[in-house]
Design a protein around this nucleic acid. Sequence first.
DNA 1: AAGTTGCATGTAATCGATTACATAGGGTTG
DNA 2: CAACCCTATGTAATCGATTACATGCAACTT
Lengths: 353, 353
Amino acid sequence: MDDLGQADRAEPEDTRVRAARIQDVARLADVSTATVSRALATPERVSPEARARVLEAIAKTGYVPNPAARSLRSQKTFMVLVVLPDLSNTFFSKILRGIEETLFEAGYGMIISDLDGSPEKEAHFAAFTAAGRVDGAILLNGHLFGQSREGEGQPARIGIPLVALCEAIPGADIPQIEIDNRASASRMTRHLASLGHRRIAYVSGPANNILERERFLGFKDGLEAAGLPFDPALVIPGDYTIESGVAAGQGLVARNTRPTAVFCTSDEMAIGLMRTLLSAGLRVPQDISVAGFDDIEFAAVAEPSLTTIHQPRRELGQAAATVLIDLLQGRPTPKQIRLGTELVIRDSVAPPG
Amino acid sequence: MDDLGQADRAEPEDTRVRAARIQDVARLADVSTATVSRALATPERVSPEARARVLEAIAKTGYVPNPAARSLRSQKTFMVLVVLPDLSNTFFSKILRGIEETLFEAGYGMIISDLDGSPEKEAHFAAFTAAGRVDGAILLNGHLFGQSREGEGQPARIGIPLVALCEAIPGADIPQIEIDNRASASRMTRHLASLGHRRIAYVSGPANNILERERFLGFKDGLEAAGLPFDPALVIPGDYTIESGVAAGQGLVARNTRPTAVFCTSDEMAIGLMRTLLSAGLRVPQDISVAGFDDIEFAAVAEPSLTTIHQPRRELGQAAATVLIDLLQGRPTPKQIRLGTELVIRDSVAPPG
DNA sequence: AAGTTGCATGTAATCGATTACATAGGGTTG
DNA sequence: CAACCCTATGTAATCGATTACATGCAACTT
């Protein structure tokens, strides 16, 4: 019966080669499939001789375990979902790299979901995770799946480990990996003030964004620490994109009394804003200082080079992946990790003229 | 026996909720599992009444098919691997977005592999695909898995559909999605020549890179078309990164006779190079013109704004994903797609001073 | 009315691994 | 030497879907 079964499928003269199965390895090594499986998963539980024969057979057949079968039985996928709001944003790419390399070393693959502000996409990926296609997820988008719907702090329960990266998720009982946005924004504001700036404008992120809220608080902290009044007229709405920086710049150019310094809460906005100021004939930093936030690659080669807050993006990604893997493997994890930032002083900020 | 089997696993008072299985749906809808499966896969083969009951049961249970089980049986994963040389490179992010959105609409997920120049990572992902974790792959890295080893045009045979994006893979019998690099480079060269530039430097990509080879041929085509001689002394090595642009700029600054225009084969190099020239007190474009290639987001807001070749990055990604999906679903596909580029004229290029 | 066709559905084999349980054999202990 | 334990290994159930094959029934043909 066994032989018949084997013979049945033994038609290798067919056109294409079928991938080797665990049975093929077992037969070649003259052991059972259980031993093959054990030789790979728990080598210490298999005799050295058997192990050697199995490894040889694996090398000979080029056997690679079928992940679908493995996952079906063990309920593990060795896949992690990374949810982000905008894949084409420069800021995320280095973070992704940090995530990817850490996951890779631990044997996990990375599936990316670019939500792009679409609730249906979000619903799809919620179902996706619920269906057990991934073992865990890293959320860069600032909220849990379906949190908008459910109100409260009780969103659709996803039964897998989650980690929030960069954008902390208020009320969610999951590890948060982030920088201290408030302190960093305060730091930059104080730096500007310490150079003598008294009228400092603030180009914001999107309303309701958690980063924006923190940075805005930090901005006000900084003003207060420097003994400067807060003037709402100096708050310019933005959304972290180059385009919104350009728009903010146009608004500034049109004013008759201008601030002497502008603190943009992303480098992309700062670069877009500088561009607009320069085109209008203003000089940076002589006429107006511009500061950014993030320290993306282009900050150092902008003209003038950009004074900004450095975020350790790669390390943020690595930390998030590490925490998630610890969660997945049942190790204890911290509830919160805060990585330090640095004030990077370049040429776009100077004392007021 | 059936009942016993059911009773066996019916311990729902346990702590966590188990995901609904096809059996749960079948029982609730009072049909067999086969009918549930058919109601989803081939609705026309199920009576309207049964279908309605199944759909209702699915809604009630929140059933989502287990992908591991489905994939084990049907040998399909609905996952696509995207292989790229450097995830943190700005150039790729918009392409990725084009790929992701197209795959998503067709019901496919995207797994990303950042090779980072590591042969072992490449080997890992070759095994990964061979193990059937993905249905197909989009290669942005210019060669097939293991092509370096095997020599010739006969690399380790991966039994799944592949598509090459941006970097054509010579000798590989797979669809290629790309722009006409040679014609585009020629176009830019002729543009510079037409403004009166006679000494045009060329900052190259990495040696042996297929894009580099094509663009270099285009550069020489352009010179020839304009009746200009080719001078090897005006070829400056680069590797598409900002840093190599900076280095190229330093080399230029140190020369006593300089070209009047520099054609950089990536925007990142052009921006790094401009930065260095400006820091050295040279004016762009008055003293020296600088042109780029790619038209990344920052090209328009660089100072001065960058004259470059626009690549339709999102559309490239979409086209590659579309072709791959067609391949996966057995539809006929073109062997090659070439998307058009555009010469974008901005401020970094002017007639020689 | 008997035979044929086709639709809707159910039964059970199957995909390929993991792992609970069973077992054989060697070693240790009293 | 009997009782016991431990190690290495095998047997077979199991994960949850898909799908080949079987079946029952209604409608149609001659």
